[in-house]
Each structure stands twice: as C-alpha cells, then as structure tokens.
Amino acid sequence: MDVFMKGLSKAKEGVVAAAEKTKQGVAEAAGKTKEGVLYVGSKTKEGVVHGVATVAEKTKEQVTNVGGAVVTGVTAVAQKTVEGAGSIAAATGFVKKDQLGKNEEGAPQEGILEDMPVDPDNEAYEMPSEEGYQDYEPEA
C-alpha cells in the first residue's frame, strides 16, 4: 500500500510541476504579447503594419512553449490582441483601416495563427491545408 501511495504522490508532483510550467509559459506569452502591443503603439504610420505582424510573430513563438489545451486559448487571445492593436492603430490615425491585415508588401496577414497546427491532446499534428499553395516548377 505504501508503494501505491508513494507512486500516487510522485504522479501528483509531476502534474503540479507540469501545471506550473504551463502557467509560466502562458505568463511569458502574455508578456511578449504586451511587449508587441507597446511596440505597435510606438510606431509611426509606416511601421504600424509591420508592428502588428511582430506582435503576432512574438506571440506565436511563445505559444510553442505552452502545451496542451492552453495553446488553443493563448492563440485565440493573441489573435484578438493583434486585431485590437490594429483597431487602436486605425482609431489613433497611425494607419488607414484599409491597410490593416496586410503586410508591407500588401499581402493579407489573416491566418497567421489560424494555420498553425495545434492539437490540445498532444496526440497528432496535421499540416495546414494546401489550398493556398501553388506547385513550383523550376525553369529549365
């Protein structure tokens, strides 16, 4: 019985440690998101679009440190934060509304985080759909 109880105690310690790591990862992701939003706020009209992409990228980098179902929630929060940063930029006159959601080359930025393969159960990952990809044929 002692062996059984000791095993359960060790398992509990492992769960607590994993929860603490997840909590730490979420806190880091939130900190990076805040950094990115402050970065966007300090940019001029020309830099705002690039700044919004930076927020998304920093958040995406930190999301990889967070495991399990938390990833889905962090990704949703990050996307809403990026959308909010863009709205703030438009409201303050840093950028025109028609410039939001495009990178410096004018290509749409939507789907940055949505296409990231995420499995809350950590069982399997699927690649994003290939609808947006084109076949590449090298020139002879």
Rank of each mutant, 00 (worst) to 15 (best):
M1I: 15
M1T: 15
D2P: 08
D2E: 01
D2F: 13
D2L: 06
D2C: 10
V3F: 03
V3R: 14
V3K: 01
F4S: 00
F4Y: 02
M5F: 00
G7F: 11
G7C: 04
G7W: 05
G7E: 13
S9G: 11
S9T: 07
K10G: 05
A11S: 14
A11I: 08
K12Q: 04
K12R: 14
K12C: 08
E13H: 03
E13Y: 14
E13W: 13
G14D: 07
V15E: 10
V15W: 08
V15N: 00
V15Q: 00
V16H: 11
V16D: 11
A17E: 10
A17Q: 06
A18G: 01
A18K: 04
A19N: 13
A19I: 06
A19L: 10
E20F: 09
K21A: 11
K21S: 10
K21G: 00
K21V: 05
T22I: 12
K23T: 07
K23A: 12
G25P: 11
G25Y: 11
G25N: 03
V26K: 00
V26D: 00
V26E: 00
A27R: 13
E28C: 11
A29I: 14
A30E: 00
A30H: 04
G31N: 15
G31P: 00
G31C: 04
T33Y: 08
T33Q: 09
T33A: 10
T33P: 00
T33H: 00
K34Y: 09
E35Y: 12
E35M: 12
E35V: 08
G36S: 10
G36P: 03
V37G: 07
V37N: 00
V37R: 00
L38E: 05
L38I: 08
Y39F: 04
V40N: 01
V40M: 06
G41Q: 06
S42T: 14
S42L: 01
S42G: 11
K43M: 09
T44S: 09
E46G: 02
E46D: 13
G47T: 14
G47C: 01
V48S: 02
V48D: 01
V48F: 11
V49Y: 03
V49H: 02
V49I: 12
V49E: 04
V49C: 13
V49S: 14
H50K: 11
G51C: 03
G51W: 10
G51R: 14
V52R: 14
V52M: 03
A53T: 11
A53V: 15
T54C: 01
T54G: 07
V55H: 00
V55W: 06
A56G: 12
E57K: 14
E57L: 08
E57V: 14
T59Q: 00
T59H: 00
K60W: 02
K60Y: 15
K60M: 03
K60R: 01
K60S: 02
E61N: 01
E61T: 14
Q62L: 07
Q62I: 15
Q62Y: 11
Q62T: 09
V63W: 09
V63T: 03
T64S: 10
N65M: 01
V66D: 00
V66L: 02
V66A: 11
V66H: 03
G67A: 13
G67N: 05
G67E: 02
G67R: 12
G67C: 14
G68H: 15
G68F: 08
G68V: 13
A69P: 00
A69D: 02
A69C: 00
V71R: 08
V71C: 08
V71G: 04
V71I: 04
V71N: 08
T72S: 15
T72F: 06
G73N: 13
V74N: 01
V74R: 01
A76Q: 05
A76W: 09
V77D: 14
V77G: 07
V77N: 01
V77Q: 11
A78Q: 03
A78D: 03
A78N: 01
Q79N: 11
Q79M: 10
Q79V: 12
Q79H: 11
K80P: 01
T81A: 01
T81N: 02
T81L: 09
T81P: 02
T81G: 06
V82K: 04
V82Y: 06
V82M: 04
V82Q: 06
V82W: 15
V82E: 02
V82A: 02
G84V: 14
G84L: 08
G84S: 13
A85H: 02
A85Y: 06
S87L: 06
S87W: 12
I88L: 14
I88N: 07
I88Q: 01
I88W: 13
I88E: 00
I88T: 01
A89Y: 15
A89M: 13
A89H: 12
A89W: 11
A90S: 07
T92R: 09
T92E: 05
T92I: 10
T92V: 05
F94M: 10
F94E: 05
F94S: 01
V95F: 12
K96I: 03
K96T: 08
K97R: 13
K97C: 12
K97L: 15
L100M: 04
L100V: 15
L100P: 06
G101P: 04
K102Q: 01
K102H: 05
K102W: 04
N103I: 07
N103T: 04
E104C: 06
E105S: 09
E105C: 13
E105N: 03
G106Q: 06
G106I: 06
P108T: 11
Q109E: 05
Q109G: 01
Q109A: 07
Q109I: 10
Q109S: 14
E110K: 02
E110A: 09
E110V: 12
G111N: 01
G111K: 10
I112N: 13
I112W: 11
I112H: 11
I112P: 07
L113E: 14
L113P: 12
L113W: 07
E114P: 04
E114R: 12
D115H: 08
D115W: 05
D115N: 15
D115A: 03
D115K: 11
M116T: 08
M116I: 14
P117I: 10
P117R: 13
P117V: 11
P117G: 09
V118R: 14
V118H: 07
D119T: 15
D119N: 04
P120A: 09
P120R: 13
D121Y: 09
D121F: 10
D121L: 01
D121E: 06
N122P: 05
N122I: 05
A124M: 15
A124V: 13
Y125P: 11
Y125S: 03
E126M: 10
M127V: 15
M127N: 07
M127W: 10
P128C: 03
P128A: 07
P128T: 12
E130V: 10
E130I: 06
E131N: 05
E131Q: 15
E131F: 08
G132A: 12
G132L: 12
G132F: 07
G132M: 04
G132C: 04
Y133S: 05
Y133T: 02
Y133C: 01
Y133L: 03
Y133V: 03
Y133M: 06
Q134E: 01
Q134P: 15
Q134C: 06
Q134I: 10
Q134Y: 05
D135N: 12
Y136N: 13
Y136F: 08
Y136P: 03
Y136G: 08
Y136D: 02
E137W: 03
E137Q: 03
E137F: 03
P138S: 12
P138Q: 08
P138Y: 04
P138L: 05
E139T: 05
E139G: 07
A140P: 12
